[in-house]
Computed example of a mutant assay.
Amino acid sequence: MNRLRPILYLLGSAAAIYLFGLLFTDILVYLVIALIITTILRPLTNYLQKVYFFGYQIPKFLTILIGFASLIGFIVLFIGLFIPLVSEQINILNKLDYDALYKSVSEPIRAVEAFLIESIPSIGEKGFIIDTLRTNILNFVQTLDFSLLINNFISFTGSFFIAILAVTFISFFMLYEKGLIRRTFISLIPNKYFEVSIGAIYKIESLLSNYLLGLLFQMVSIFTIASVGLSIFGVKYAVTIAVFAAVANLIPYAGPILGSLFGIIVGVTTGGLFEMNNELLFLLVKIVSVFAVVQITDNIVLQPLIFSKSVKAHPLEIFVIIFAGASLAGVVGMIAAIPAYTVIRVVFVELYKGYSQYKIFQN
């Protein structure tokens, strides 16, 4: 029974965390986001606390406010990159000749229809594809309940501001009370398991730190390759496309596809190329070639460096874990799968080593 006690403690703790997550999902999400923000801002706040102005040290609460101001400024700059793009897209939509657009889109569809009817006469009559599409689009527009959309938007806005307040409050006290969660967790560890638990905590912090640094390096690399490549080819809003691609790449496997699709859509719409011609094909080739280089670099260099080296896991492990996270929690699960798996794996490995090597577990 004594040999099974550590495993029972671990399973009980995991079950308690899982039950807490089910009952208080919002609070758990707030804690995780606050922990990420704290991790991002802590180096800046630690540096500011060591700086003296006219012989006086900056108060801790002021360094935290400077950190939050820096984060808000970064977010504002990030959003500001997309404002000119959105403004231009609105102008394009206002000036767009929808009759000509409908004609250019419907012509290839009608050509496909004609080919199918000629090959399989029983498949339908002329216009069976285009008419079905038009009917479905009109039905979708007619069934939209705009009052429900407005109510959902108001509800989302209220929930969003509550989340912002909660995350800001939690993050502030995590930064102010440095190491509060860590000290609280360590104080709950029985002396019998203290050494093994400290070793596990140290390895978890080290691996997660390496993983976050790897992700940062990945984002900077993708941004650099995409922005330089698109700028060389003269694609408008190259920096904006590169920023979106770098952020979207946080989503494993699907992120690069989203980034390339966003680049194609922006390149086509801002270039005003709505008809299939050589100029459009050349533009598509340029954008796709840049993102092909991004994808090859990411798959061959960046991902092995980040996943295999930083979290010390086999690529097949990573593949299975990411899709398991996707099945449990969608896109959020895909992003959080690797850090969560790292924590769980380190805990079990350290517990097994401790059980095998330390006599205190076997008495």
Rank of each mutant, 00 (worst) to 15 (best):
P121D: 04
S209L: 12
Y52V: 02
A111N: 15
L28I: 10
Y176I: 08
K126V: 06
I264A: 05
F68H: 05
A69S: 11
V343S: 00
T297W: 09
L62M: 10
K309F: 08
S327F: 11
L133I: 10
I201E: 01
V290C: 05
L28T: 10
L8G: 04
T39A: 10
I186Y: 12
I232S: 00
D97C: 09
R3L: 15
L4Q: 12
A246L: 11
I120S: 11
Y253P: 00
R5Q: 14
V311T: 05
L302S: 01
L215P: 09
F282E: 15
A337V: 07
F194G: 00
I79A: 15
G214L: 09
I222C: 03
V220S: 10
G199A: 04
Q57I: 12
I7S: 04
L258E: 03
A238V: 04
V228A: 03
A340T: 03
Y18R: 07
L35A: 15
F307M: 06
V228W: 12
F74P: 00
I264G: 09
V349F: 03
L212Q: 11
N363C: 07
I137V: 14
V290H: 00
T269H: 09
F74Y: 14
N139P: 00
N278G: 03
V105F: 13
E279A: 06
M219T: 02
K203E: 11
E125W: 08
V105I: 14
L138R: 01
F194V: 01
G21P: 02
G179Y: 11
I64T: 02
L96F: 07
E107Q: 14
A242I: 15
G234Y: 02
Q303P: 00
G80T: 05
I109R: 04
S187Q: 14
G214P: 04
L305S: 12
Q142R: 09
N191H: 10
L230D: 03
I117N: 14
G12V: 13
F173P: 03
F262W: 05
Y56H: 08
V235T: 13
Y253W: 07
Y193Q: 02
L230S: 01
N136C: 02
L261T: 12
G179H: 08
L65T: 15
S308V: 14
G255W: 02
I66A: 05
L280A: 06
N299R: 06
V220E: 02
L65F: 15
G80A: 14
I360Y: 11
R183H: 14
L77E: 07
I27V: 13
L281P: 00
L71S: 07
L41M: 15
S197Q: 06
L23Q: 11
I79C: 12
Y56D: 13
V332A: 14
L165V: 13
L284A: 13
E118A: 15
I117T: 08
S327P: 00
A254W: 02
A324Q: 12
V86E: 13
Y237V: 03
F74K: 04
S106T: 09
L280Q: 06
K60M: 13
N139T: 10
Y193D: 09
V32K: 07
Y9Q: 05
Y56A: 12
M276A: 06
